[in-house]
Design a protein around this nucleic acid. Structure first.
Lengths: 229, 229
DNA sequence: TATGCCCAAATTGTATACAATATACAATGT
DNA sequence: ACATTGTATATTGTATACAATTTGGGCATA
């Protein structure tokens, strides 16, 4: 038998996901922050968390480092780590950068999307529209998020996907989605309609412009409704 | 006496830069990769590097983690770390993303740059033009890099600066600058002239478009002249 | 010769021990 | 009482020890 699975013809078998402890810890810690169990500015005491998670300090520290790079945690030498305090302004700046990335993605997608891909995207869009019409807020937001991710994915640029994902994690720090009111919800749905039409027409410039405006607007609304400084 | 130096009038005393070991190690390791001492695909054996750098494995592993997040190193569980092998295609994709970010920066700068800032930028530009005219390649490229960084900085968006910086590190993986020929050099200088004019005119759309094209073109040239796959 | 198995060496992953640093609080002097 | 200094404690940073995993080679077997 071949020791190197990659060289076999088997497409169906994929290497088992070899989890490292620190990855698990990072995921859990991330969840704790996103779910608000740990809130902004909270000090993270290594030994205390170690006891709770039942791991030693080494993997925890590695996980902390991961979240630092994701921007969820801040760290001062010899003074430990804290959950990043995000201000309204930073939130807008975050969306500003995301708007640049998604604009790029939208332009690429409008130029190069294949019929089957477009159909799949359209079906997501339709599903979202349904939830919107039905007033099902949570389901709407899940679909909305998926669509944005999908568009970035369709750009076919892994570096774009990765960069975008990292920033999105920070943006989801607060459940900002819940903050937007009815008006913005309507508006956003319209913007999505426009973007889909631009895709269909293959109008890259338009798709890019609309996407950028859409995300930027979202950021402005988030900034305006953001609690704290 | 006040325990908090920030509140004193003393502007002259600033807190000492408290270096952590792993930061030093990360810097050195980064340099080793960028300078080509460690080349693409090279395995990184922790104990061996530890001996060379005279540190224990813990800070080295932390430094490795940092470079992983920067994209300079890849890592497979239980199989150690390797210097990332960058393909020509990935290089173009990298510049693609950078073009999106710099476009955003250029648009913002064109809208909001202050006269004094513009003057400073213009002086950098002029200096670069001089080196260009004099055929001083290395000096030209240093200035060129500084100008791009400056424009991103002038956007006033720290998240943009940070994201951009991280991607630029990866882009500098190879001294791609040296690869571009005389033709591209001429062309790039012209593009920079156009961008500066757009800034002066306050034409955000134009500045953004020109910047995007400029960076994208750079990426294409890099892709074309890139060694390896 | 080729294949599969098993073991040993090398290497990475995790836990723990020790050192350096920061923080809180009591002691001291003014 | 107030500010300053000294000391104990808590916490982080680094080194080392131990466990788990991978890798490569020898050897038996067909």
């Amino acid at each position: 038998m071949n020791l190197h699975p990659k060289n076999t013809s088997a497409r169906t078998v994929r290497p088992v996901r070899r989890q490292q402890l620190h990855e698990n810890v990072a995921r859990q810690l991330r969840a704790l922050i996103l779910e608000g169990v740990l809130s902004d500015g909270d000090r993270i005491i290594e030994t205390a968390l170690c006891a709770q998670l039942n791991v030693s300090r080494t993997p925890l520290r590695e996980a902390i480092k991961t979240l630092i790079h994701e921007g969820l945690i801040e760290h001062r030498p010899n003074r430990g780590a804290r959950v990043t305090k995000t201000t309204a302004k930073e939130m807008r700046q975050l969306f500003e950068v995301i708007s640049g990335l998604e604009m790029l993605a939208a332009e690429t997608v409008a130029t190069s999307i294949k019929p089957t891909e477009f159909k799949r995207l359209q079906s997501l869009h339709d599903k979202m529209a349904m939830h919107h019409a039905a007033g099902e807020r949570d389901e709407y937001f899940v679909l909305n998020h998926q669509i944005h991710l999908k568009i970035v994915e369709l750009s076919g640029n892994p570096i774009l996907v990765e960069t975008h994902a990292s920033l999105m994690t920070r943006a989801r720090h607060l459940r900002y989605q819940a903050l937007a009111g009815q008006d913005r919800w309507m508006e956003a749905m319209e913007e999505h309609n426009g973007i889909m039409k631009a895709f269909e027409a293959g109008d890259a410039a338009l798709a890019g412009r609309l996407m950028k405006q859409h995300v930027r607007r979202t950021g402005e609304v988030v900034e305006a409704t953001f609690p704290g400084p």
